[in-house]
Design a protein around this nucleic acid. Structure first.
Lengths: 343, 343
DNA sequence: CTTGATATTGAATGCGCATTCATATATGCA
DNA sequence: TGCATATATGAATGCGCATTCAATATCAAG
């Protein structure tokens, strides 16, 4: 028999004080005698009273410019991808640690982001984090108008007034090229996402540019969709032809592992004896002993910490100017590049 | 310059109707002329008005027994684990498809579950899903008293009034034993979680019981914590001794892959030539061509679909009796059990 | 033991919405 | 055409809380 929950009025009655007093007892800066507060909190504890966050949010709408809900909206694409799952895990932890709740919305494509944000905004989220996607120009405006700070994770800040945190994709691509060149490779293939994927574009650009400095061009370019299977399929195309690459730079570890498995299983190729392979991200399975994938690591703990810091600061003080940060990737030398093992 | 958002009053004024009319225009069953509704919706659209879910929730607290927030709390342990990440992805999708928002809270240990639920309840969630953990007796009572349906995913229903969805762990253990026995193994080791982990207990029980029917006992038992590294360490202990098992049943794929990688890398063992290995869950990397792990599959799409159905039905109608469902695991024969390849 | 300043307290209010109740308008049927 | 019924609308209300404002209690200094 569900019954309505205990309110501050009930506690007030039981404690012999006014409802205002109860409210103040639960507000950090409340003007209330310490003795009274103790008494109220004790009674409230006995009764199992917890302030209603929804009502609190309504109430603050009166004096604040915007009502605060204490919730942060998080929009994520490809949640099943281990890289993003891990990212979410960190965001969740960091947000919670600062007392924010996470309203999670997962979408499949960029197109759904606007709808997701609309749904989230009905809940009066205090800020929003978008993973590997951007907002439409319109929604960016709406957020700005409403004073909702936006954090783009893994994307360039699309607009004035929007914050972002991401890895140095261009430099990461350069590093990969550098390593492969240094190992003496010349038939270097690239595997990335589609031609309109911003992440791929940057990584490929850095990669191609660095190759160019040595007078080389990518040996071949294959497209995938950041899934293991698409990596495997890329490998199938790459190694089925007469002319095989002597090395591959792959814009994501998941796809790189697809290539690695395919090479071993479908073509009985040894790595790095038959070809070198370098990935991007440094997901945990890249370090598994039978993989030992050489890759560019994203310092995601620091990146996410920074993203949460930037966002929470702006939720507390909407006047702060937007901020964007880029982190350098770190080369993790393992065993998939010829002659270049761990130091 | 953040400004307060548009309310139903603004729309009402602009449309030349009362606030009630606007509210009704946005309420599916509202008593309002179709013509008026169209007009209001059109004006609202132009103004970019969206009903405030928080205020709506406050309002419904008046007539309903409990206020409805439209949010489901999800408490998850070990979010970084690919199995759970994937589970969350599905929950998110299914919940969204039915119009529910997901308030996600990740915890590290069972101890934190109560606190998490308390935080979530302040937001007046309409239901809660707990992954691989249970509630304290006290919180279970509180939820019951408040009429908040609880769905335990991956756990036995701990209490009257609580719903659950899980895999048949006991039978899964039996199947694993069956397969290994059939393959002619006799030195069969078990690797699972700690002795108080309910999942491990059941799987191990089924496994041991089936071995017993053939007059066998587990060759050895190693403990891990469901991480890849703990699987690897278990393998280190298992294969460093003179007497090696001829096969291993591992209560989770992640740990099983730790064993597989360790066996190949640390001991140069071939699978299934040198020993057989069988996992549990069927995570996606179990199917990677250079793994091809034989395992017991959890039909998680169906399981999660069922969990969401059960929960949403009860959020809509709190009078429904609790329901618990168990799904059978399916043996997926790949290449890690001697003589038993895919059919 | 005053007086003025300060710390506490309670009553009243409104956040934005859904809903009830009373009223006005439209529809059906004789 | 007239009356009963159904439908559409608006005014008023309260959900649970934080906050403002006014009133009271407490305290320090003279």
């Amino acid at each position: 028999m569900p019954k309505r929950s205990i309110t501050s009025y009930h506690v007030a009655t039981a404690a012999g004080v006014s409802q205002s007093a109860v409210s103040r007892a639960f507000s950090p800066g409340g003007s209330i005698a310490e003795k009274t507060r103790k008494h109220i909190l004790s009674i409230a504890g006995e009764m199992g009273y917890q302030p209603n966050a929804i009502a609190r949010s309504m109430s603050t709408a009166r004096t604040d410019v915007r009502q605060k809900s204490g919730m942060v909206g998080v929009i994520v694409t490809r949640l099943q991808d281990p890289f993003f799952a891990n990212t979410i895990a960190h965001f969740s932890r960091d947000l919670q640690a600062k007392g924010w709740q996470m309203l999670l919305f997962s979408v499949d494509t960029q197109n759904e982001v606007d709808d997701a944000l609309n749904s989230l905004m009905q809940f009066k989220i205090d800020g929003v984090i978008v993973l590997s996607a951007i907002l439409s120009e319109h929604m960016a405006q709406v957020c700005k108008a409403q004073g909702i700070p936006v954090m783009l994770y893994n994307r360039d800040p699309q607009d004035e007034g929007i914050c972002s945190v991401q890895i140095e994709n261009f430099e990461g691509g350069q590093i990969a090229a550098e390593v492969l060149l240094e190992a003496g490779h010349e038939q270097i293939a690239f595997v990335g996402g589609g031609p309109s994927d911003p992440t791929t574009i940057e990584r490929e650009r850095g990669f191609v540019e660095r190759l160019g400095e040595s007078g080389l061009k990518p040996f071949r370019r294959e497209t995938g969709d950041y899934t293991f299977d698409s990596g495997r399929e890329a490998a199938l195309r790459l190694f089925s032809r007469r002319e095989r690459p002597d090395s591959v730079f792959c814009a994501s570890d998941v796809m790189a592992l697809g290539i690695l498995h395919s090479a071993r299983h479908d073509f009985s190729l040894e790595i790095p004896e038959d070809f070198s392979l370098i990935g991007f991200d440094d997901i945990s399975s890249a370090a598994w002993p039978d993989h030992l994938l050489t890759t560019i690591r994203q310092p995601i703990r620091r990146m996410i910490g920074e993203a949460v810091d930037i966002l929470t600061e702006r939720m507390d003080d909407p006047e702060l100017p937007p901020k964007s940060t880029r982190f350098p990737g770190a080369l993790i030398l393992r065993n998939t590049v010829r002659g270049m093992g761990p130091k």
